[in-house]
């Protein structure tokens, strides 16, 4: 499918307590594409997403086996540096969660963690990322106002800018538009399409229309297993598996 997968999952099993959430997941995620993970709620799609940047580590009673290779490096290697792995990936969660600080500080948060950038560098970086997410003109006069004063849609774009500021390679979106109004949703969707020139983007979504609009590939997950993986149009219009067919039919018809 592609020559060099960006994320390569090999025989990943995730168990929380006595419950097997993910069973023997093996998949290669291609570079610089938009990939949607779809499936009914509770099927494990969010868990799969979070396994990519080790956000499952702090879950109580979690057991993870198998490998996740990012750029050929196994992130579950005991020697792997978790902060380094997470820095490679920006996460956009279901609802915007701006950090309890100003708009400017939200974007500067990551860069400040990873070094001591000069004021001018930081100013420039904040401006670049806010422009990249189309927020600059809306907030340039109130950069030092608390981020919570922004509208929900603006907050979500701010969260995206915040994630981009640490120069990740991958963007992970966990139903990132589910709390947004239609206008903000389409702004975010357009951003994803624009950003795939530079980033690999993995989105969890339960809206098939959205998956169709933005993604190049779709992964269908059901009850902790990957049922089907393929190019968007092919999977939606011509599914090979019976389960996929039923799921797709239930939503698009």
């Amino acid at each position: 499918m592609t020559n060099n997968p960006h994320i390569s999952v090999q025989h990943l099993n995730v168990q929380i307590g006595n419950q097997e959430i993910l069973k023997d997941i093996t998949i290669n995620i291609p570079n610089k594409k938009v990939i949607s993970i779809i499936g009914p709620s509770g099927c494990g799609k969010t868990t799969l997403l979070k396994s990519f940047n080790r956000l499952l580590d702090d879950t109580a009673d979690v057991k993870i086996t198998g490998k996740v290779l990012v750029d050929g490096e196994n992130i579950y290697d005991p020697k792997a540096e978790v902060t380094h792995i997470r820095k490679k990936m920006g996460l956009l969660s279901q609802r915007p969660y701006p950090l309890p600080m100003s708009i400017y500080d939200n974007v500067a948060y990551g860069p400040r963690l990873h070094g001591k950038p000069k004021k001018t560098e930081l100013d420039e970086l904040v401006e670049t990322q806010l422009k990249a997410t189309g927020l600059w003109n809306e907030v340039k006069d109130r950069l030092h106002a608390p981020a919570t004063r922004l509208s929900i849609g603006q907050q979500q774009r701010l969260c995206l800018a915040r994630g981009l500021a640490v120069e990740p390679e991958i963007i992970l979106g966990d139903e990132s538009t589910s709390a947004l109004d239609p206008v903000s949703t389409s702004i975010i969707e357009d951003l994803f399409i624009k950003l795939k020139e530079k980033y690999t983007i993995v989105l969890v979504t339960h809206i098939l229309r959205q998956a169709r609009r933005v993604s190049d590939y779709i992964i269908f997950v059901y009850m902790g297993r990957i049922i089907e993986f393929g190019p968007t149009e092919e999977l939606l219009l011509n599914p090979k598996e019976e389960l996929t067919k039923e799921y797709v039919k239930g939503y698009i018809s």
Partner: peptide, 15 residues
């Protein structure tokens, strides 16, 4: 404090 807020910070590479 919402878990997602902490995850936002962690996913930016914070310890």
């Amino acid at each position: 404090i919402p878990k997602e807020l902490k995850e936002a910070s962690l996913s930016l590479g914070a310890t």
